[in-house]
Amino acid sequence: MNAIKDLILKMADDALIIGHRNSEWTGLGPTLEEDISFSSIAQDKLGHALQLYTILHEDHEEQNPDLLAFTRKAEDFRCCQYVEMPIGAYDFSLIRQFLFDHAEYNRYQMLSNSSNNRLAALSQKIKGEIKYHVLHADTWVIQLGNGTTESHDRLQKALTDSMPLALGIFEKSAFEAELIRNNIFEGEDALRERWLGSITPILQKAGLELPDISTIEPAYGGRKGQHTGHLKPLLDEMGEVLNTDPTASW
C-alpha cells in the first residue's frame, strides 16, 4: 500500500458502500419522488466507485473493479464505519446523506487541486455530481427540520446519534503527512473544518442543533480495516451471485 492507493481505495470503498446502502431504499421511499432521488444518488455513487477502482486497476496494478468491489474480505475494505450502517429509518438515512455528502463534496473540491493529475481531473467531474446530492440533502433537512414537531425531533435525534459515526469519516490514514507534503490532499483535519463550515449554516436554517463535537469520541477504525458487524453481511450479499463463479461472465 502506498499513500495515493490508500487514499483512492478509501474513497472508492466509501462510494461503493454508501451507494449500495442508498439503493436499499428502492421501492421503500417515503414518497415516490424520494425513492427516485435516492436511487439516482446511489447510481452516481456506484459510478464514482467504479471510476476510482478503475484508476487503481489501470495505474496501480490492482485487480479489475468487479473483483475489487465484489470479492474482497471485509477487513480489506477501507470505508468509514458510517457508510456501512444499515439504512434504518428515513431520518437516519437522510442525515447520513447530508453529513456524508457535505464531506464528500468538500473532499472532491479539495482534490480537484491535487498534484495527482488523474485524481484531480476525476474529482473535478465528481464534484459536479455531488453538488446535486448536497442540494437534495439540504432541501430535505431544511424542510423536515421546519416541518412538524415529529419531523424536527426525529432529525435532531438522528443528527445527535450519528455524530460519532460522522466524525469517523475524518479518520487519518498512516500516509496523512505524506499526502499533505506532496500536495496530493490537504488532509482530514482541513476537510473536517471545511465540512463544519458547510453544514453549520444549513443546520441553523433547519432549526437543528449541532452537538458539541469536542466532547464526542469519533467512531474510528474503518480506515484501518476495523469494521462494524454490518459490513460482512453486506459484502456477502453483494457478492452472492458473482462469487458462485467469479471467472464467469455475468
Binding site: E24, I36, A42, E237, L242, W250
Partner: peptide, 29 residues
C-alpha cells in the same frame, strides 16, 4: 427485481438494474 439490486453480479449489472427499477418507480409516478 429490487431485491436483486443488492446482489447483482458486477458493476455493470448492478448499475443497470438500479436504473431499471428506478424507471419503474418513475412510471408509477
Amino acid at each position: 427485481e429490487g431485491t436483486w439490486i443488492t446482489r447483482a453480479p458486477g458493476f455493470k449489472r448492478k448499475m443497470a438494474l438500479m436504473a431499471k427499477v428506478q424507471d419503474e418507480i418513475g412510471h408509477a409516478q
